[in-house]
């Protein structure tokens, strides 16, 4: 097992990609959008600005992880870089794991920089807002959210690599990964609505339940409300179980990816 050279060169390559700096710039722009939207609303403008800024942060990191993992893996295969790499004494699984680690590093750096951008943006908005009851921003909570968002990015990267290996079209791989993400976000609400509904047949309820257990649950990483409303309390157990959950599930996805890549004709 020696995935580190591939991880290193992947990371070096991804940092110089346009999407890295481009999406960070987009995030700064979206902060201004959040501020503008919040000006429209009556009452607690900081709450609304935070809602939007954090949602933009959440989705930018998700998009970045998908783009980076799918794009980079797919390009390797279609541009024949993979021949250069696999002609060296590296196993195919080394390549997949290395690619994943490289993407993880890139996502980590991206999330970290985004955290700084978003936090400074929110703090500026809250300090300039003219409110009778000031909306307190707790930076530790933003940081905890960023940690979860990073875990989500890692999780999504694993799926991105899997889809890039599985599909022969990059667009298809990208769309599938994005749909998977959206479906994973919807899972909890759907289950909540279906199980409590009187109009859904038991068979369909069972199907939804099974999907709820097996499908990746991306809504776990969404703790934006915890950052916005200080009244909400979260136990450390929650963070620990989300960490373990994403660790186990990500490993499973990577296992499938290596299995498929071992059998793929290049």
């Amino acid at each position: 097992m020696n995935p580190f050279p591939v991880a290193k060169i992947t990371f070096e390559e991804l940092l110089k990609e346009k999407s890295f700096i481009g999406l960070l710039t987009l995030e700064v722009f979206l902060l201004f959008v959040s501020k503008l939207i919040s000006n429209v609303v009556a009452g607690d403008t900081v709450k609304v600005a935070m809602d939007f800024a954090l949602s933009f942060f959440f989705f930018t990191v998700a998009l970045y992880s998908v783009f980076v993992s799918v794009g980079s893996t797919f390009r390797d295969v279609s541009d024949r870089v993979v021949y250069l790499i696999l002609s060296k004494p590296l196993k195919r699984s080394d390549y997949v794991i290395g690619k994943f680690l490289g993407c993880t590093l890139a996502v980590a750096l991206f999330t970290f920089l985004s955290f700084f951008i978003v936090t400074s943006g929110i703090l500026t908005i809250s300090s300039t807002a003219n409110l009778y009851v000031p909306h307190v921003v707790v930076v530790e909570r933003v940081f905890l959210l960023s940690l979860l968002v990073f875990l989500m990015g890692v999780f999504l990267s694993a799926f991105g690599i899997l889809f890039a290996i599985l599909f022969t079209s990059q667009v298809l791989a990208l769309i599938s990964a994005i749909f998977l993400f959206l479906a994973g976000l919807e899972l909890s609400p759907v289950k909540e609505l279906v199980v409590s509904s009187k109009y859904v047949s038991p068979v369909n309820k069972l199907i939804v339940q099974i999907a709820y257990y097996l499908f990746p649950n991306f809504s776990l990483f969404d703790v934006k409300d915890y950052v916005v409303h200080l009244a909400i309390k979260v136990s450390p157990l929650f963070f620990a179980s989300v960490f373990i959950y994403s660790l186990i599930y990500t490993s499973a996805v990577l296992l499938v990816a290596t299995y498929l890549f071992d059998r793929r004709e290049l």
Partner: peptide
């Protein structure tokens, strides 16, 4: 091994690629 019409990421430098090979 050198493949037909070989390609490597344009964004990295020649030295970084050689470093990768040396790492391997």
């Amino acid at each position: 091994f050198l493949p037909e019409r070989p390609y490597i990421y344009g964004s990295i430098t020649g030295e970084e690629y050689l470093d990768f090979c040396a790492d391997v």
